[in-house]
C-alpha cells in the first residue's frame, strides 16, 4: 500500500486488519468504473467500523478507481478527504490521473523486481567495500581508514563511492544507513 493517508490511520488500518473487511475493497471486485466510498458502504455492516474510524481521521468521503490486473488480482487508487464534491468532469479527470499513476507505480515496482533479489538486498559489495563501510560507520574518516587498512586514501574513497552506487545512496551517511538497514554491516 502506497499512501498519503494520515500515518496513524494507516497504522491502525494495518494493525486491525481492516484490509479484510474494508467495504471499498470488497466493492471494487465487482465493478470496473470508479465509485464513491459511500456507495460501497451501503448494505455492508461488517465493514462499518472501517468507514466510521476513517471519519475520525478526517476521511469522510472518497473516490475509488478500481484496477483489475491481468493475473486476476485487484488494486485501486482512492482519493479521500473531509469533503469531496466532484463534478462529472473532475471525476473523469481523477479517473485518468489514477490510471497513469497506477501504470507508473507498476513500472517502478517492475524495475525493482528485475534487480536480482539477493543483489538488491546485499548490493553485491566486495569485502573491501564492506570493510570501509564498517569503519565509516565507526566514525572513521577516509584518511583514518586508509591508515588502518594500509591502503591509499584515494582507494578508500573509491571503495566508498562504489558502495554508494551499489546501494543507490546519495552520500556516505545515507550509504552507511542503507548498509545497516540491509544488515550488510551491524
Amino acid at each position: 500500500m502506497l499512501s498519503g493517508w494520515p500515518r496513524e490511520w494507516e497504522q491502525r488500518y494495518q494493525a486491525r486488519g481492516f484490509i479484510h473487511v474494508d467495504p471499498v475493497l470488497r466493492h471494487l471486485k465487482g465493478v470496473i468504473d470508479p465509485f464513491f466510498w459511500h456507495e460501497a458502504a451501503t448494505g455492508q455492516t461488517e465493514g462499518r467500523v472501517v468507514m466510521d474510524e476513517a471519519r475520525v481521521f478526517g476521511l469522510r468521503e472518497g473516490f475509488c478507481v478500481p484496477f483489475h490486473q491481468h493475473d486476476g488480482s485487484e488494486a485501486c487508487i482512492s482519493f479521500g478527504g473531509a469533503r469531496l464534491e466532484l463534478s462529472t468532469d473532475e471525476q473523469a479527470a481523477l479517473h485518468m490521473i489514477a490510471i497513469y499513476a497506477a501504470s507508473t507505480a507498476k513500472a517502478i515496482m517492475h524495475r525493482h523486481a528485475q534487480v536480482e533479489p539477493d543483489a538488491r538486498t546485499r548490493g553485491d559489495l566486495t569485502a573491501r567495500e564492506v570493510e570501509c563501510l564498517k569503519w565509516s560507520a565507526a566514525g572513521k574518516t577516509a584518511w583514518d581508514i586508509s591508515v588502518i587498512l594500509s591502503i591509499s586514501r584515494r582507494t578508500v574513497e573509491h571503495h566508498l563511492a562504489n558502495a554508494c552506487t551499489k546501494l543507490h545512496a546519495v552520500g556516505r551517511t545515507h550509504c552507511v544507513a542503507e548498509a545497516i538497514r540491509r544488515r550488510i554491516i551491524a
Binding site: 470496473i32 484496477f67 483489475h68 468532469d89 473523469a92 479527470a93 479517473h95 485518468m96 490510471i99 497513469y100 497506477a102 501504470s103 507508473t104 507498476k106 513500472a107
Partner: peptide, 19 residues
C-alpha cells in the same frame, strides 16, 4: 479508460485527448 492502463503498461506514450 481501463484499457488505457494496458497501453501505458505496454510502452505506448498515451495522450488523453478528452475526458
Amino acid at each position: 479508460p481501463a484499457l488505457v492502463g494496458r497501453l501505458l503498461d505496454t510502452g505506448w506514450d498515451v495522450e488523453t485527448l478528452a475526458l
